[in-house]
Simulated scan of single mutants.
Amino acid sequence: MQLDAYLRTNLKTRHLRLLVALDQFHGIRLVADHLHVTQPAVSKALSELEKGLGVILFERTSMGLSPNAYGKCLIRYAKNILKEVHQANDELLDLVQGTSGRVSIGAMQGVISTLLPAALTRMKALSPATTVSIKEGTLNGLIPDLRKGDLDMVVGRLPWIRSDYELKEKILIERPVMLVVRRTHPLVGKENLGWRDLQGYPWVLPPRGALLRDPLERELERHGVPMPNDYIETLSVHLTLAYLQSTDAIACLAGHVANTPATPDLVDILPLRMPALIGRVGITWNGKHTLSPSARLLFECLEASVQDAGKAGARKRRDAAGPTLPGSTT
């Protein structure tokens, strides 16, 4: 078959770059400028590629070149192949230069000051020359970069509903979401505290579109608590904790944040449970891309750091409970 033979023997890296550029710019002139070639050279290369494959890849429209079903299919694979070639190039350069690779990650609020530092410390102890680039943002802001291959993984809260099966997930922590206030808040120590006691207080809410916002609104509605009129919106843990100290505001924090060593000195957890809001923190990566050795090492360090934190928490709880008396049961 003509298409099969051409793909196996004649398809070159320059063809892949041409396809990706055409998909990005949709015009011969812009593609020529981007690839630093002449416009006739772009037209000739595209014509040769379509002739070699025996199919038309782009439709000529008033808006420029638009990929059809054949073009979209080949472009998708072209992007993945170029990503792998770029990754191979980086790893070879690292070997030649005597370094140990690089990894780019996206990190969400909540892991920046809790989970990530321990994992990075562990990784640097094992591979000091590895370069780690960290981009902070929301899940919706980081996922496009993950798809494009600009990020190796995203670390942070996982969505309650998984809608994209090209993206792979690894759950590291599952903790309930908790309502917290400053330690001298009027609600701390209140007998028979109920949901309606929350009315009238200011809040710190996740922004609209954040993973926690809709589930939190549904939980408040389920308990007959109207959405507050007095609130700020932020995903910043540091801002939330600082704001709580100077106001009577109520905030919700994931359990792994609320129970970090520094946080209990600043806030109290209200004894109101939200079983529907289980915070899932983990790693998201693109299943179409192979993780580099450096990325796999960071993956393993994240898993190990979570395990160490769990053991440390268990020891702290045992110490707080005091020695077990002879004959007692646990």
Rank of each mutant, 00 (worst) to 15 (best):
R218M: 14
V237M: 09
P215V: 04
S236H: 07
Y231K: 12
T234Q: 08
T247Y: 06
P202E: 10
P228G: 09
L211H: 10
L211Y: 06
G209H: 10
E217T: 11
L205F: 07
V225Q: 06
L241W: 12
S236I: 03
P206Q: 03
R222C: 05
Y243E: 03
D230M: 05
H238E: 14
A242D: 09
H238Q: 04
D230I: 06
P206T: 01
L235P: 00
R213E: 15
P202D: 12
M227A: 11
R218A: 13
V204R: 14
E217Q: 11
L212R: 02
Q245N: 03
P206G: 02
A210M: 04
P202A: 13
L239R: 15
G209R: 05
T234L: 05
M227C: 03
P215M: 02
E233N: 13
S246C: 08
D230T: 11
H223I: 01
G224T: 08
L211G: 04
A242S: 06
P207S: 08
V237D: 10
Y231C: 15
A210V: 04
S246D: 12
N229Y: 01
L216V: 05
P228I: 05
E221Y: 00
D214S: 13
P202N: 10
H238K: 14
A210C: 09
I232D: 01
L241S: 09
P202L: 13
P226V: 02
H223F: 12
N229H: 05
W203Q: 01
T234M: 12
S246W: 07
T234K: 11
H238I: 13
T240D: 09
R222T: 06
A210N: 15
G209V: 04
D214R: 06
T234R: 02
H223N: 04
S246T: 13
L235H: 05
E233C: 15
T234Y: 12
T247Q: 02
R218I: 05
Y231N: 09
G224N: 10
L241A: 11
P206N: 06
L216W: 03
L216I: 07
A242H: 03
P228H: 14
P202K: 14
W203T: 07
H238V: 14
E221A: 04
L216D: 02
L216M: 12
T240A: 03
E217N: 08
A242I: 00
Y231P: 03
V225G: 02
Y231R: 08
E217V: 14
N229D: 11
E221V: 00
P215H: 09
P207T: 08
D214L: 07
W203K: 04
T240K: 08
P207V: 10
